[in-house]
Computed example of a mutant assay.
Amino acid sequence: MTSVSVRDRASTPRHYLMCRPSHFDVNYAINPWMDPAKPVDTALAVLQWETLYDLYRSLGHTVDLLEPVPGLPDMVFSANGATVVDGLVLGARFLNSERAAEAPAHAAWFRAHGYEVHVPQYVNEGEGDFAVTDSWILAGRGFRCTPEGHQEAQEFFGRPVISLELTDPRFYHLDTALAVLDGDEVMYYPEAFTPGSRAVLARLFPDALLVSKDDADVLGLNAVSDGLNVVLPEAAVKLAGDLRDRGYKPFPMDLSELLKGGGSVKCCTQELRP
């Protein structure tokens, strides 16, 4: 085990934007996790979401709320609606028409709270495909976000954007295959990426935590870290142990109802970076 894996950890207060799943349902299928034939318990989804919301607040984080809009069942996945870096807001442009109206709803919230919003020309789905480390913005492509969207983000934020190609439709967003733990420390599932992208990740992050297929298959990488506390799906049992070995404190969460929509902890959590 490397020295980076056993160093002391410290949490940093974060600012999140979430959206209560008041209208959550699965009445269309735009990723392999979604099956409209399977019943959805919206009340249970709300209860699971509220447990996550309460946990963030108990850990000392600030959580703002985006008002859910009837007819937009995926708004609970608030991470997809924008990317905020250095106080700059890059809005989203969704690939699928079913989610298109979420982008202006997010933009309206940011404008109402004093932010200027850059409305993108090219497809990007917010933090679904953008992961921010200290040195880079990692950007997924292959299913949703486009290379042009990556270039647009680099020009807007003035930070280097590293494009990574996803190959498995189950890992349709970067945040299903990779998570930032702290600084330039990440964890990821190698088989979700092309060989070239795996080589880039290995070069940039030689001490990364590599995640097993079993943990990836339950969206264990759809996780949120504050530098010490890592909130992740409870089914990712081995991953929780691996995080403990590296000095992190895992907080397993049951978001099984929201998983029917193809999302979990990170999908529900947009970070507002000052």
Score class of each variant (00 low, 15 high):
residue 2 T to M: 05
residue 5 S to M: 12
residue 12 T to F: 05
residue 17 L to F: 02
residue 18 M to K: 00
residue 29 A to Q: 14
residue 33 W to Y: 13
residue 34 M to Y: 13
residue 34 M to W: 14
residue 35 D to A: 14
residue 38 K to H: 10
residue 45 A to W: 13
residue 48 Q to P: 15
residue 53 Y to S: 02
residue 54 D to Y: 02
residue 56 Y to E: 08
residue 60 G to V: 09
residue 67 E to H: 14
residue 69 V to P: 12
residue 69 V to F: 04
residue 70 P to E: 01
residue 71 G to T: 11
residue 75 M to T: 06
residue 82 A to E: 00
residue 92 A to Y: 00
residue 96 N to H: 15
residue 98 E to Q: 14
residue 99 R to S: 09
residue 103 A to L: 09
residue 106 H to C: 06
residue 106 H to S: 07
residue 113 H to A: 03
residue 116 E to R: 12
residue 124 N to W: 10
residue 126 G to A: 03
residue 129 D to H: 01
residue 131 A to E: 06
residue 136 W to R: 02
residue 138 L to E: 14
residue 144 R to L: 11
residue 148 E to T: 05
residue 151 Q to E: 12
residue 153 A to F: 13
residue 155 E to I: 14
residue 172 Y to R: 04
residue 175 D to S: 07
residue 176 T to H: 01
residue 180 V to G: 09
residue 195 P to Q: 02
residue 196 G to H: 03
residue 197 S to A: 03
residue 202 A to H: 05
residue 203 R to V: 03
residue 205 F to G: 09
residue 213 K to Y: 01
residue 219 L to T: 05
residue 222 N to M: 11
residue 223 A to G: 02
residue 223 A to C: 04
residue 228 L to C: 01
residue 229 N to Y: 05
residue 233 P to I: 02
residue 234 E to P: 15
residue 240 A to I: 03
residue 242 D to C: 08
residue 249 K to D: 10
residue 251 F to N: 13
residue 251 F to K: 03
residue 253 M to W: 03
residue 256 S to D: 11
residue 257 E to K: 02
residue 259 L to E: 09
residue 269 T to C: 04
residue 273 R to C: 03
